[in-house]
Design a protein around this nucleic acid. Structure first.
Lengths: 242, 242
DNA sequence: AGGTCTATGTCGTTT
DNA sequence: AAACGACGTAGACCT
């Protein structure tokens, strides 16, 4: 039934009790208040006082959201330990993790509202039009790459890593296929290049079945990527994602 | 003073009024409730019913958070248009944007709590230990790269893009420096490689001042990246970020 | 609006 | 735990 308990403009001491209980209970805890934020870990940051929403999750995530942006100004990843304390009469929320050693400290001047929700949520997101979907489509219909193309192996491993699709063209030449769900830049060409080079090094293809081909399959290419493709002698095949 | 107004278990019609007013007023709006979520745009997704926190920001961002993860299950970037409506007696929140055309639809079976905050926040995040900081450090003290190194140009542009630092070594040979604030993988070597190639192509360095050198400056390198560096004849210089 | 790159990227998967 | 790559990446900066 998802009980939700709310405190309005609680004293810092009452807020402390409520946060502690919410963390104990495994509740999703949302705090609206005026706060400063310090972070130290992989990098470090300071944020002056402002009105923000702080979200503490039972999995150890912490998020500090301002009134702008999709991305939190500050955060802590899942697996962190949240603790609350009152120091100098003000509420402090600290989230720590080790490896890497990182600490997020939120100091509230004022707490406007504190809410704890016992969230009931067992549904998982069903996401379509991913790169994996494109891979499956090509396995089902290799002609998407080109006439006569055959899939030999998916996620074939090499010293350069796993390539999306390894196959053969109509003449039996080895083909490395790199997939992207969106318009590709220079980085994707670099990736394809590393795989093709690895296949060339690892197997004596040149003499037996012809040189290794590289094919990039994506909705479109940027100009710089196109130039790189041409320079490396690779090809591009356009696909729609829907 | 950040007025915060809260509704507890409002009717869907009352929730509609409150959301609409909050969006009008430019408030940060947080909704706790049981909902399903549909997304269609660059990809598409469905999410079954569960208890979540939905955050609507005055800049047009929308976030749907479950009780797990740093990343929202679903979202809409800043610049989207939020609208609310009651259909079949239940509250629907829709966030749309064009270019790309994307729609997020949140349908509430139940609203546990609805909060609007007139957030006052003009402070910006001060972030340290970024790549830009490393760049400044090297401009101030080029010896970090190597003895006798001189910075010629920062963000020098080439047909392959802007390189972090372009300089000369003690013998006057051209050096392309690529910076990373953390341990680097194969992609960074590819980047360096593209810049070095561009410089080689664009200028007749080989004959006049010797071959173009490539140096990767970062805290550390992964094995695959190290192998690539060696193969391309590039060098690595280790730095601490603190 | 599109291209390119950084990020405390995060997240999943595999070694 | 480290490595590697995908992500509806987001965000910044530049053309």
């Amino acid at each position: 039934m998802a009980p939700v308990t709310t405190l309005h403009r609680p004293t810092h001491r009452d807020a402390l009790v409520a946060v502690t209980e919410a963390l104990e209970a495994g509740d999703l805890c949302s705090i609206l208040g005026r706060c400063t934020v310090e972070y130290e870990g992989r990098a470090e940051s300071s944020l002056g006082a402002g009105d923000r929403l702080v979200l503490l999750k039972p999995d150890g995530s912490a998020l500090v959201h301002t009134d702008e942006g999709r991305t939190p100004v500050n955060w802590q990843p899942p697996g962190s330990d949240h603790t609350a304390a009152v120091r100098d009469g003000t509420l402090h929320v600290v989230s720590r993790r080790e490896s890497p050693d990182e600490t997020l400290t939120v100091a509230f001047e004022a707490v406007y509202q504190l809410t704890a929700m016992d969230a009931d949520d067992d549904r998982e997101l069903d996401l379509r039009q991913t790169e994996a979907d494109l891979q499956h489509r090509i396995v089902d219909d290799p002609g998407i790459v080109e006439d006569g193309f055959e899939v030999v192996e998916v996620e074939r491993r090499s010293t350069a890593g796993a390539m999306d699709i390894f196959g053969r063209d109509a003449e039996g030449r080895p083909v490395v296929v790199e997939l992207k769900r969106r318009r590709v830049g220079p980085d994707a060409v670099g990736q394809l290049s590393r795989y093709v080079e690895a296949v060339r090094r690892e197997e004596g293809f040149e003499e037996s079945e012809g040189d290794v081909r590289g094919v990039l399959v994506a909705p479109s290419v940027t100009p710089r990527a196109e130039e790189l493709l041409a320079r490396e002698g690779f090809e591009f095949v356009g696909v729609e994602m829907d």
